[in-house]
Write a protein that binds this DNA or RNA. Structure first.
Lengths: 241, 241
DNA sequence: TAGTGGTCTAGACCACAGA
DNA sequence: CTGTGGTCTAGACCACTAC
């Protein structure tokens, strides 16, 4: 769990909300009361509540109070991916994720790949093509590029499981952010073959660059999803002015 | 512009970054130096930089410094929508947005619409169907539901422009957040007719609930986009632990 | 050891809402 | 007027990085 105080407080309040500890139709206690209860300053309390606002559980109204967003209590359908988690293995919690390696080799990157990975064309890159299953159903086809000098120790064994788990646990690297571009597309032949879809079944494609905590991009990928098995959810909070 | 200090500082630093004021391959000045330059406390400086981190312009490394994310300097293609702006009129800056009203009437909501707008089925709701053009090209078909007692003064004139502008400027309401679900779909007949697409052209659909700053949902909508004219971009920063 | 960002504090003042 | 959240401060200590 979070070793940091504001994360621990946010975790506790999130639990209270989802377990119905606070009446959903009135304000939760004010910042000062909560700060006193949790033995922290008001600023720290504010930071904890800010986490839950960004998750879409709470909204706050100056001069009024902090309230539970009704929609957060409705069991939103499958909710396959949120803006928060990275990686299919982490997203499909409780369901079994398996992977079939279709292609795996090392090559020099083309200019587009090199550009997104911020490397030159002389740096070798893993080319990985995986078909991924959730509970045995074909779910997504992932084409992934990673600089091989940076992400070491990739082999068939790793590819059958979770690359992200390998990066974090075996390589000790920290994943920090991702930039995604989401679009619809027509199915390629490869999609039709492996995702078992017809020529008029659309594909939802997620193009992504993922960064380590030192700012280095380590993954450039295209994930192509069956249109009937994937919804991408995003929560957007406006900044003042 | 932002009347708030940290927003104004963020605006200034954003300008410096995009104009190349800071060398892109080394750290920008540290928090204390910047705080001194802008005449603010270190906490305020941190808050300003946090804004730019969330926008994907900067990344920060404890014990190391604050750096410009290379990818933010590359002129990312069209970048039609980011997680930040709400509303087509605001997204398609510099391009001409026009709207054609296909249907517009008031009715009672079905249970699904009522649920997402947090109203009962006796509250009348605007049903709006608009085709929207960017620079004269058909771009997106929007089906929108809004509670008519809440969003007043909607007429053909407003619908041909920007509803959001009407809500903010004429009604004085503040839009605060949105929850989006993005998926691919096959084109309906209505899509094919108005978006000028063929039966095998996919559609990118954005289902959305938009909230006022008092937490009231005021819009439930489905925006159906031509697959070749819309990319949805999302930036995701991981929280510690 | 020096320098960086991350967290946390105690308190101040401001902006906004409702009685 | 009171109470709410929003901002800002000056300073402390901690965690991590590089030298």
């Amino acid at each position: 769990m979070g070793q940091v105080k504001y994360i621990k407080i946010a975790d506790e309040i999130r639990n209270r909300i989802t377990r119905g500890h606070y009446p959903p139709d009135q304000a939760i206690p004010d910042e000062m009361s909560l700060a006193k209860e949790f033995g922290c300053s008001r600023m720290t309390m504010k930071k904890a509540l800010e986490v839950l606002v960004l998750e879409g559980l709470l909204y706050r109204k100056r001069g009024h109070g902090t309230f539970i967003l009704q929609s957060s209590l409705q069991p939103d359908q499958v909710n396959v991916l949120s803006g928060e988690t990275i990686g299919l293995t982490a997203s499909a919690k409780g369901r079994q994720v398996t992977s079939q390696v279709i292609a795996f080799h090392v090559d020099f990157p083309d200019p587009e790949v090199a550009k997104h990975l911020s490397i030159d064309q002389e740096t070798p890159v893993y080319h990985i093509l995986r078909l991924r299953f959730v509970d045995g159903e074909p779910y997504v086809m992932e084409r992934t590029y990673m600089p091989s000098p940076l992400i070491t120790g990739i082999n068939e064994e790793v590819l059958k499981g979770s690359i992200y788990q390998h990066i974090q646990e075996n390589l000790g690297l920290t994943i920090s952010s991702s930039h995604k571009m989401i679009r619809a597309d027509k199915p390629h032949e490869l999609d039709q073959k492996h995702l078992a879809c017809t020529p008029d079944d659309p594909i939802l494609e997620v193009e992504q660059v993922v960064y380590l905590s030192n700012g280095t991009p380590f993954e450039y990928s295209f994930a192509r999803h069956r249109y009937d098995k994937f919804v991408f959810t995003v929560i957007n909070i406006q900044r003042p002015q």
